[in-house]
């Protein structure tokens, strides 16, 4: 589904990713561990195609298509969706309005969806204006559920979320990733996690550690998380497998 080869990415003239290789198969969920500033968000932003994140070498292919030259919206319409960690506030655009603007593959009842995500009272509010951490995540999920992308990029879905919200968020991330389907699953995901809490709610297939703009290690995500909890990322940067 997603095939990244030798990817180098520059932000404002500074190289952040120094050659990343990553392959995500249809139906898989990958998690990305790594210290702050290691380049995790840069990778997601580059996949989504934000102009500030300039690809200087390598390639990103999605559904067999090279994404080079495709704008952010073209990538979104191709089936890539992203949960932003800190989305901007957009004054004057209500959540309901936004949900209706999103080109949806299948029509979803936004009111029902918002009810399930405890967002019914937020539909008529400006997007992200005065939303708490949990509310932002749920609003992002609502938009993604409407968009229904094949590749779901989640940037720290657990940050700023309390335990109660985590249950709901976990449940709907599973739904986004079609975790209840095995054979017919055509969605895949790449999740950035700092704490790893998301793994208590969403099963992942492969874990990666990013250090200083490189994927230094891949393996069983639970084992990797335990390792990181015990030894920290310092060990990862020293470890050469």
């Amino acid at each position: 589904m997603l095939e990244i080869k030798g990817l180098k990415v520059e932000v404002e003239g500074r190289e952040i990713l120094h050659g990343v290789d990553l392959s995500i198969d249809c139906g898989q969920t990958h998690v990305l561990f790594g210290m702050n500033g290691s380049g995790k968000t840069t990778l997601l932003m580059a996949i989504m195609g934000f102009p500030r994140y300039r690809v200087t070498a390598g390639s990103i292919r999605f559904k067999g298509q090279d994404l080079a030259g495709l704008s952010v919206d073209e990538r979104a319409r191709l089936g890539i969706g992203m949960m932003f960690q800190r989305p901007p506030t957009v004054r004057g655009i209500k959540l309901m309005q936004m949900a209706r603007l999103i080109p949806a593959r299948e029509e979803r009842d936004i009111n029902v969806l918002a009810g399930e995500l405890n967002l019914a009272d937020f539909l008529e509010r400006d997007i992200n204006h005065g939303f708490s951490g949990g509310e932002i995540k749920r609003s992002e999920l609502l938009q993604l559920l409407v968009q229904d992308p094949n590749l779901v990029l989640l940037d720290e879905p657990e940050s700023g979320v309390d335990m109660e919200n985590m249950q709901v968020i976990g449940e709907y991330i599973r739904s986004l990733l079609q975790k209840d389907r095995r054979r017919t699953r055509d969605h895949c995901g790449l999740i950035i996690t700092h704490t790893g809490y998301i793994l208590d709610h969403v099963e992942a297939d492969v874990g990666h550690v990013m250090c200083d703009g490189r994927l230094v290690c891949s393996g069983n995500p639970r084992e990797m998380l335990e390792d990181i909890r015990e030894n920290g990322f310092e060990e990862c940067s020293r470890c050469v497998r």
Binding site: S71, D73, A76, R91, G92, L101, I102
Partner: peptide, 25 residues
């Protein structure tokens, strides 16, 4: 940043700009 946020949901640049300007007004 707002334009790109809307584009990441699949709106074209023109659609995103127009929605933001309408919202502004």
């Amino acid at each position: 940043e707002e334009v790109e946020y809307l584009m990441a949901r699949g709106l074209s640049e023109e659609e995103a700009t127009s929605a933001i300007v309408r919202g502004f007004l």
